[in-house]
Simulated assay, not measured.
Amino acid sequence: MKVTLEKIRPDKKEVLRNLYSLYLHDLSAYTDGLQISKDGSFEFDSFSLIWEKEGITPYFIKVDEKLAGFVLILEAPFTKKVDKVINDFFVLNAFRGKGVSKAAVSEIFAHNKGRYYISQLVKNETAVHFWKNIYKQMEIDFVEQPEVQDGEEVVYQTFTVIKMPGIALERERR
């Protein structure tokens, strides 16, 4: 199993829009702040900014060339005290629990050095646990803080990636 990141071109934005609806649907289990729209989808209200503003980079997560999810990374001017923010990270259910998420994070860190900020909704215990496992497996020292963002309790971590942290995650499975 080969996990890769592919920068999303503007001509693939509808694919990303569809994935975002699935991602926001998943997040709606942990917040009252996300509601389904009249057309039956969950919408990211700032979606158009992805291709209009500098400092926003979307990637598809692919497994053996198959679409498996996406990640949205923010940089300056959206970041102030850090270099990178993993703003959104989503893997389709069919690929969860198979090492895809860990391999995708490994790819992100291998190609994007710097100081990071990652936050999770406190109620999303699965995401909080996932990121803490990543830090432990990759031997990343992080600082964690609670915060309220848009009326939601979140926990966020900051840390620095200067080289591929800790153990190399397996990128191919047989």
Rank of each mutant, 00 (worst) to 15 (best):
M1Q: 03
V3F: 11
R9P: 05
D11L: 02
K12C: 08
K13I: 00
N18P: 00
L19A: 10
S21G: 09
Y23E: 05
H25C: 13
H25G: 11
L27N: 10
Y30D: 03
G33N: 15
G33T: 05
K38L: 15
F44I: 05
G55E: 04
G55T: 00
Y59F: 14
K62T: 07
K62F: 11
K66D: 14
V71C: 15
L72E: 02
L74M: 10
P77S: 06
K81A: 14
I86G: 04
N87C: 08
N87P: 03
D88G: 00
F89M: 05
A94H: 06
F95L: 06
R96K: 12
R96H: 04
G97K: 04
G99D: 04
G99T: 03
V100F: 02
S101F: 01
K102A: 15
K102C: 09
V105M: 15
S106D: 12
E107F: 00
I108R: 00
G114V: 01
S119K: 13
L121M: 09
V122N: 12
V122D: 15
N124S: 03
F130V: 08
W131L: 03
W131Y: 08
N133F: 04
I134D: 06
M138I: 02
F142Q: 02
Q145Y: 12
E147Q: 08
V148K: 13
E153Q: 07
V155C: 15
V155L: 15
V161H: 09
K163N: 03
K163E: 11
P165S: 01
L169A: 10
